[in-house]
């Protein structure tokens, strides 16, 4: 009976529909549409809540985790790079200091050697100078003696020539000596 009624209503509404009414306001069809709407909503709700949402949220969380990990790793690597650079700079500074030290040491050594050499040379020069002085003194002494000898012999000869037989060698020698001392 109810079946018949709905059929009649359906036919009636279709006739109205042919007349160009608004199918949206055809209240006889509402139970049908609401029923299928409910069915689809429930199906979509279960698809979403049982499958899609957990899956997508887990994927997003996983990706977030991966990104966080990657950023942490990158930070670590960066830290390492900074450390390596520091070590390199330190090594460079050390090497530079070492080089400076070696240069200073070498300089000192050379200075010492130089000093020694200079001192030695000075000593040698002093010795030579002393020797030379002695030699010069001797030569001077020799020269004075030679001058005395020459003067004496010359004076003797002159005296012999001027006054033969006069005077004697002793007087001449004394005279020359006094003369040379006075000169």
């Amino acid at each position: 009976m109810a079946q018949d009624t709905t059929e009649v209503v359906g036919e009636l509404t279709e006739q109205i529909g042919e007349g160009g009414g608004m199918p949206q306001l055809d209240f006889a069809n509402y139970p049908n549409q609401i029923f299928w709407l409910a069915v689809s909503l429930v199906i979509i709700y279960f698809i979403l809540s049982r499958v899609v949402l957990p899956r997508v949220s887990s994927v997003l969380a996983e990706r977030q985790g991966t990104i966080t990990n990657d950023i942490a790793t990158a930070d670590e690597l960066k830290q390492k790079a900074v450390e390596a650079e520091e070590a390199y700079l330190k090594a460079l500074a050390d090497a530079r200091a070492e080089a400076g030290r070696i240069v200073a040491e070498a300089k000192l050594e050379i200075q010492a050697e130089l000093d020694v050499a200079i001192a030695k040379a000075d000593a040698e020069i002093a010795a030579k100078a002393a020797e030379s002085e002695v030699a010069i003194g001797e030569i001077r002494k020799g020269a004075l003696k030679a001058v005395e000898t020459v003067a004496r012999s010359t004076a003797t000869e002159i005296i012999k020539a001027v006054m033969p037989g006069a005077g004697d060698a002793k007087a001449v020698t004394a005279a020359v000596k006094s003369q040379l001392k006075g000169a």
């Binding site: 079946q3 709905t6 059929e7 359906g10 036919e11 509404t13 279709e14 006889a28 069809n29 139970p31 049908n32 029923f35 299928w36």
Partner: peptide
């Protein structure tokens, strides 16, 4: 023509 509540 009939549209019952279950009709596809």
């Amino acid at each position: 023509h009939a549209i019952n509540w279950y009709t596809p």
